[in-house]
Simulated scan of single mutants.
Amino acid sequence: MKTDDLITMLSSGPDVRLAARPARVTLLPLSAGLLASALLMWLLLGLHPNLAGEVLLPAFWTKLAFSAALAWAGWLAVQRLCRPGARLGGLPLWLGGPVLVLWCAATVLLLQAAPDARAELFWGRTWRYCPLLIATLSLPIFVAALHTMRGLAPTRLRLAGAAAGFAAGAAAAVVYCLHCPELSPVFVGFWYLLGMLAPTALGAAIGPRMLAW
């Protein structure tokens, strides 16, 4: 190597960019995790008996869109946190936006509902086990996300683990929509979110150990 070439290389600084990975390396484990979550839901819970009727209701699609939007935002956070030096940018907006929109809709619904109907809108019939089921269904996706992230270069390990847990929890909520009988935005905005935050907390706790280089 010529001296001038060496000086040019050193002055440009180290190249910290990650080599591009084939899409299948990322998509296959995540798809397998999502499929395992769906299979687990089908075997343990089954589809909602009136699912064909529910898909005709706007409330069903609101529930599904809320969960899917948070799953997408969570995966976007995972991708950013696996790149050293990548900026988080508008991630707080993408993560908080769906929650804020649904909470506004839930507030309007509560204000319009009769006082004796408000408790039912919040508690529903499945609040005792809804968050637990979402957290349980998230485990295959969570494992797949951690496996994928270990092949990359996360530096903020606790935050990256939390992002993996949140993305997995939100994706599991999408799957759980096919079983859940609840349609109230008030219920979904609290109990679904609680179910997503459980794997988020787990990811924050084990991220430094599981994602260490």
Rank of each mutant, 00 (worst) to 15 (best):
M1F: 14
M1S: 15
T3I: 14
D4E: 15
L10M: 15
G13C: 08
P14W: 13
D15A: 11
V16I: 07
V16E: 09
V16H: 05
V16R: 06
L18V: 10
A23P: 04
R24P: 01
T26G: 10
A36M: 06
L39Q: 06
M41R: 06
L44Q: 11
G46M: 12
G46Q: 11
L51E: 05
E54Q: 15
L56V: 11
T62L: 14
A65Y: 03
S67E: 06
A69F: 06
L70R: 04
A71E: 01
W72M: 11
G74F: 01
W75V: 03
V78N: 02
V78H: 00
P84E: 08
G89F: 04
G89R: 06
L100N: 02
V101R: 04
A105L: 14
T107R: 08
L109G: 09
L111H: 13
A114F: 06
P115I: 14
L121D: 05
L121V: 07
T126C: 12
C130T: 09
P131A: 06
A135E: 02
T136S: 08
L137G: 07
P140E: 02
P140G: 04
A144K: 00
A145R: 00
T148C: 11
T148W: 03
M149L: 10
A153C: 13
A153D: 09
L157F: 05
G161F: 00
G161W: 00
A163Q: 02
V174A: 04
V174P: 01
V175M: 07
P181T: 09
W191E: 06
L194V: 11
G195N: 01
L197R: 01
T200G: 02
L202N: 02
A204D: 02
A204E: 04
I206K: 05
G207K: 00
P208K: 10
R209S: 14
R209G: 14
M210A: 15
W213N: 12
